[in-house]
Design a protein around this nucleic acid. Structure first.
Lengths: 242, 242
DNA sequence: CGATGAGTTGACAGAATTCAATTGAGGTGG
DNA sequence: CCACCTCAATTGAATTCTGTCAACTCATCG
């Protein structure tokens, strides 16, 4: 449903028809760019709808495009030859996806739920960089943020216990939901237990067991498997490394 | 000692006196920049010597400067309040250190062994960006590389076994040594077992036991604790995830 | 209504951590 | 020059935790 306070344009048939009407412009790649830049960006932008499960690109593919997620959720991951998977991040609306240096994607990305994206061709974006260094500056900032998040996640993967990982995961996801202006109370988990496990470096069983443990300690409630009510935020924070 | 083929300037008293004489210019931040840019870079550059154990900056410090390592080795890490540590990377000559977006360092960095760096003030670098977008472009490429490396390391931390981690660590370090034009055969480990453990998400004991296991399988030899001879590279590669 | 797949739970084994002791190397001072 | 001290690295033993394997529940969908 479409709240009254928010323009509906971007939320129904496909991606927004213009950057100006874009719901998440304040969060996205385009944030901080003035209208002149946005106009130029809009000219090279292609709207892309994605269904749950669809692959956006695969590790090793030629990286000719970059994306900005406007709706839905993606998993970004790397795989080992034997099938083990590490999800390096979940992309939410406003997130930038598809960074690559040498023209080859270093990771894969697929839609967890139906999603909508803005696609930009890399060569065209590079042209835009030349005329508007401001845009490249913005991309540098985004990449830097991603790097900081990656380091944060390395700390989680390498040095946190399962409970700490889950607590951190839930709290961070809630915080992201808040920043996106989404409902935090029934926190919605678009990803499966398997996705969470592959993100936190655990097994599904451990994820499931930890959920039940948090529930039995009355820190959270799980009205449905994909809906979390954080009953005791401070208690949950108390599980974080101290 | 100073080989005949290589200018010695950078190797003795302090850091090189000029970028032109810089041994590692082809690897560093400055690589790919023409002489015009390099001259400008040199004007805002300050040489910094660092002794083993010295801290370069700490997480949370105001990030007014960025660095380019020219000699030695650093550990870049994050810590948990209770002292657990995750080393997110080892910086070697040519590596760029001190990236930060919001003006606050997101991690700490200290010298593992004596090191030399080029320091650049962030505001001055930003000024340079404005006049020479090429330099910012280069920084974006470096940041992107760091992000790819971080994702690679997340895969290691979250989904590899101790043996796989150690094999990958040794092979990657050897490859880096090769790219730096350093001796690969007695591969030198500037970092301690504790550092390796905190990098791979293990304990010192597990690191030590894995070393002995690799040695007993005749894949490596350890003439000294900090010198590794990779006796059977293919055998070592055979331990990597398949 | 049965089938399918995700999620949860249980039992068990194995692996890595923890705790503890030993070895070894480097450095200092007698 | 040697003895001793200190710290890093290694090794050993025990435990605990997480992963593995397997069964079961539940909801959804054909």
């Amino acid at each position: 449903m479409c709240g009254a306070a928010v323009p509906c344009m971007a939320m129904h048939n496909g991606v927004a028809d213009s950057c100006e009407g874009c719901d998440i412009r304040h969060l996205a790649f385009c944030a901080g760019l003035d209208d002149v830049h946005t106009d130029q960006l809009e000219q090279i932008r292609v709207a892309i709808p994605l269904s749950a499960g669809d692959s956006l690109f695969m590790e090793g593919d030629a990286a000719e495009t970059v994306y900005n997620l406007t709706e839905g959720a993606l998993r970004v991951y790397k795989m080992l030859p034997d099938g083990r998977r590490q999800i390096t991040g979940f992309a939410l609306p406003g997130d930038f996806v598809g960074l690559s240096d040498d023209g080859i994607y270093a990771h894969s990305a697929e839609a967890i739920i139906d999603a909508k994206l803005c696609r930009f061709s890399r060569p065209q974006l590079d042209t835009l960089f030349r005329s508007h260094p401001e845009v490249e500056h913005r991309l540098l900032a985004i990449t830097g943020d991603a790097l900081v998040a990656a380091q944060e996640h390395m700390l989680l993967l390498g040095r946190m216990t399962p409970v700490e990982k889950m607590a951190a995961f839930l709290l961070r996801l809630a915080e992201r939901a808040g920043r996106l202006g989404r409902a935090e109370d029934p926190l919605i988990l678009p990803m499966s237990r398997g996705d969470i496990a592959d993100f936190l470096g655990l097994t599904v069983e451990t994820v499931s067991r930890t959920f039940t443990r948090l529930r039995s300690e009355n820190l959270i409630a799980l009205p449905q498997p994909d809906k979390v009510h954080i009953a005791d935020p401070d208690g949950l924070r108390g599980l974080l490394p101290s």
